[in-house]
Design a protein around this nucleic acid. Structure first.
Lengths: 175, 175
DNA sequence: CGCGAGCTGGTCATTTCGATCAGCTCACCG
DNA sequence: CGGTGAGCTGATCGAAATGACCAGCTCGCG
């Protein structure tokens, strides 16, 4: 499963389509790709078995859920107990994503909160975690280009301009 | 559709389950939640119609696809043509996500590349975009906590935050 | 030339979906 | 106190999607 799968153009187009709407039926995908239903089915199975396609996740509109404030906090650590700190962070619901990074800070943490006031409290709570020495937080104002992978996977096989595959969202969605 | 939807605990548990695997059938979800299939179906429809649940996206393992290097680039801009710069970025397949931020830099860009060398070229290409004055890039080494939303939505209902304690007749949404 | 891999168009049984219905509980309100 | 409406339930139904097959075709390659 850690075998690097050879992605051809059909695979990447399939993934790009899924990125647009992962709920559409296999028959629809086949129609859009101009191939047979069986082909799409076998491709999907291969992608899933190879581990490249790990599954599907819901796309949640945070603003619609009342999460009006999003922020990225870069944390500097002064202890080596990285795992413990991760545990602490994972226990906080408002922590949506954590990356370990190089550079001045050691962690990049994605935060969601209802209000600025709550975000402030949240940051205080995070900085109070033992081992966290400093935090550098920047507010995320808008999300002009939501997460996408299709174009990148397209280049893996075809190095020509797949540039604008994922349609630019209806102007910058507020988060 | 931009009316804030009142999420109750069942909704958030449903979303949490979907986040674990968005492909499971409605009957399975109903079983796991301990409610009837009809209930799950109506909840899903409401969540989708309200715009909170915007759809589903495939979960791609970047490493499995040969994208071994991930990085965050904070871009400082010196011109006001934000839209043009966004367009430029969107045309680059390796640009996976863009946030407009407050703080010293103006954009936070998530990048994916096959190798460090390619990342370097990519950054040079980005800094060469007219209007981009400076770039501050940090490598993402690992991803200890992948993106998640379930826990945060769970608190939205339990917490005081904006859940009125007086049980108003739930005005689920307006049209 | 012969082989294997991949795509095709077809069929088939099973599962799932979406919609609908009556009945029940419960909170709220006049 | 009794009416009202919303939400959940269990049930049914037809339509759709799924996963699994299969034989036939083409194409690249040794």
């Amino acid at each position: 499963m850690s075998t690097l799968l050879r992605i051809d153009q059909l695979d990447s187009e399939l993934i790009a389509l899924l990125e647009r709407d992962a709920r559409q039926s296999i028959a629809d995908l086949a129609g859009r790709l101009g191939v047979s239903r069986n082909t799409v089915q076998s491709r999907l199975r291969r992608l899933a078995e190879s581990g490249l396609l790990r599954g599907f996740a819901p796309r949640i509109d945070l603003a619609e859920a009342g999460v009006n404030v999003e922020a990225f906090a870069a944390l500097a650590l002064d202890q080596g107990r990285l795992d413990d700190i991760i545990e602490h962070l994972a226990a906080i619901p408002e922590v949506m994503e954590v990356h370990a990074t190089s550079g001045r800070e050691d962690l990049l943490v994605r935060l969601g909160a209802v209000s600025h006031a709550e975000l402030q409290q949240l940051i205080q709570r995070i900085v109070a975690i033992p081992g966290v020495s400093h935090s550098n937080t920047t507010l995320a104002l808008t999300n002009p280009l939501p997460y996408r992978v299709g174009p990148l996977l397209g280049t893996a096989t075809r190095d020509a301009g797949w540039g604008r595959s994922t349609a630019l969202p209806e102007q910058y969605r507020e988060e």
